[in-house]
Each structure stands twice: as C-alpha cells, then as structure tokens.
C-alpha cells in the first residue's frame, strides 16, 4: 500500500488550502557522529556487474554544511556465502571503496564486512532478481494533475511469490532522485504500475516535466527487510514531521557493529538486480 502513504500527503494538501508555510530557525539536538555505510551492490540487467562501489561516510549535525564526511582508511570486503568467493574493495581515499571484478549471482547470499577504527561491522543480504520494465508511457491524465505530463512504467509481477520493488527516477537536471517502493500485497500476479509526475509551479514552467525532458528510471528487486527500511526512510524523508505523519524514529539498517553493539552504523548493505530505461518526454 505504498500509495496510502501518499494519501497523507493529500490530507496535507487539503490543509494547505488555507495554511501557510515558512522557513524558520530551530535549535535541534546534536548526536555524536556515526558511521554511514551505503553499500548498494546493484547489478544492471544485461551487464556483467563487475564494477561496484561502496560509500562510507559519517553523520553530522542536522544543519551542518561544512564538515567533510568521507571515511578513509577502512577495510571493506564482501563474501559470497554460496561460493565463498571473497571480494576486497579498494579505498579511493574519497569515501568510495571500489572493485572491478565482482561476480553477481542471482539469489546468492553475500556478507559485507567493514573494519573501521578497530570496530567490525557486518551485514548479510541475498541478491534479489527483478522483472523487466515494460513499455513506459506518458500522458496528461494519469497523475494527480491533468495539465502536466506524467510518465508511467509497467512491470509484470510474478504470482507465485511475495515481491518488493524500489523505483528510482531522476531527471538529468535534478539535484536528487525520487524513490518509491511497492509491494505486491494488494496486486500479486498483476501488471504493476508506478507513475511519476512533478508538481506544477506557476513561476517556473521548468518545474514540471516538459517535452524533451529526459528521465532515468530504475526498477530494483529488493528484500522484504530492505523494503521496510527504505519505505520508512522515504516516508520520513518526504513527511519530515507533518501533522499526518508517523512519529519519526531512528531507522536501523542491517549493518551490525560486532565489536560494540551500541555503535551501530547507519545505512544498509543491499544486493539487487535492477532494470533501467531512459525516457524522453515527447
């Protein structure tokens, strides 16, 4: 029911009819920095998937814009638990740890090990396969607003299993991508669809999708645990504390500190297959 989360946004929209919104200064608490592991081993359909990057950084105070958060000098290793193959990632001294000979195998189990500041962090995930993206279509009528362009992707959900998806869309001019999750709880075995539309801004005709705009759309097959993690992360990111949102909470990923349990890491170790298309609005 991912769209139900969107419903809360509609409620907020209704309130917006008469409300006003402004930027203010707020004093927020500051927690000590924590390690952030963004270990996303994503295998694009039809490629070898040998090149992979893991990013390590630290958290900062909420309004901080100055701190360099890159983590250098960690040891990063991934093991395939089925084949026992070991992949050592190379420190690029900018927070990125890369490898060029990773071998992805669908449904195999992988374990991540990060050693940083004498503490060992581990996480285990399976490589989840994904169904391909079918015919993306554009329309005016599809989304919330009938006067702006939207794009819808379709994909075929396998009927005999529970599936979880993440869709990532980014226009080439966007600063960041938009993420959505879907489960087949209410739609098992059917053709799934997910639409994207940008809100109209009367002062900026470029805000919405226009003919000629190109968007990159990726569809990931994800595990149920990652689905829970990323859905909560997206929900908290989007709502950020509006009146119809759930009380925000710490989002715990799967990276466990084996040395000092309390000093766990943010982020997640995911291993996914994804399909990707570039779509240009006509």
């Amino acid at each position: 029911m991912t769209k139900n989360i969107k419903f809360t946004v509609f409620l907020a929209l209704i309130i917006t009819f008469i409300s006003c919104d402004d930027k203010i200064d707020v004093d927020v608490p500051e927690a000590p920095p924590r390690l952030v592991i963004e270990a996303s081993l994503d295998w694009k359909k039809g490629t070898a998937g040998n090149n992979q990057t893991i990013k390590l950084s630290t958290s900062t105070p909420f309004f901080d814009t100055t701190t360099n958060t890159s983590v250098i000098g960690a040891s990063v290793r991934v093991t395939n638990n089925n084949s026992n193959a070991v992949y050592n990632f190379v420190d690029q001294n900018d927070g990125n740890y890369t490898i060029t000979n990773f071998v992805p195998v669908l449904n195999d189990s992988y374990t991540l090990e990060v050693i940083y500041n004498g503490e060992t962090y581990t996480a285990t995930e399976n490589l989840i396969p994904v169904t391909p993206i079918m015919n993306p279509t554009q329309s005016l009528e599809g989304g919330f607003d009938d006067e702006v362009l939207d794009v819808t992707i379709f994909f075929d959900d396998p009927a005999d299993e529970e599936n979880f998806y993440m869709v990532r869309i980014k226009e080439d001019t966007d600063l960041f991508a938009e993420l959505e999750t879907q489960s087949d709880e209410f739609t098992n075995g059917n053709v799934q669809e997910e639409f994207f539309e940008k809100e109209r801004d009367d002062e900026d005709p470029e805000a919405e999708y226009n003919p000629g705009d190109t968007v990159n759309i990726r569809l990931f097959g994800i595990s149920e645990r990652y689905y829970n993690f990323i859905s909560l992360l997206i929900e908290q990111y989007d709502s950020g504390g509006d009146p119809f949102s759930v009380t925000p909470a710490e989002i715990r990923g799967n990276c466990v500190n084996q040395t000092n349990e309390a000093n766990y890491a943010f982020g997640y170790f995911r291993v996914t297959e994804f399909d990707e298309i570039d779509f240009t609005f006509q």
């Binding site: 707020v26 927020v28 608490p29 500051e30 927690a31 920095p33 924590r34 952030v36 963004e38 996303s40 990013k55 950084s57 630290t58 958290s59 900062t60 105070p61 909420f62 901080d64 958060t69 990532r168 960041f176 991508a177 993420l179 992360l233 908290q236 990111y237 950020g240 504390g241 009380t247 925000p248 909470a249 710490e250 989002i251 943010f266 982020g267 997640y268």
Partner: peptide, 19 residues
C-alpha cells in the same frame, strides 16, 4: 515532537536521524 539529531547522506539524499 521529535526533532532530528543529525543527518547523513544516503542515495544522494540528506537523511535525518532521530533519537
């Protein structure tokens, strides 16, 4: 209410952490 006590980058987004 619950205010954020930090932020970190994930998927290119600035994610708030809460306690």
């Amino acid at each position: 209410v619950t205010y954020p006590n930090g932020q970190y980058e994930y998927e290119g987004l600035s994610i708030a952490s809460y306690d």
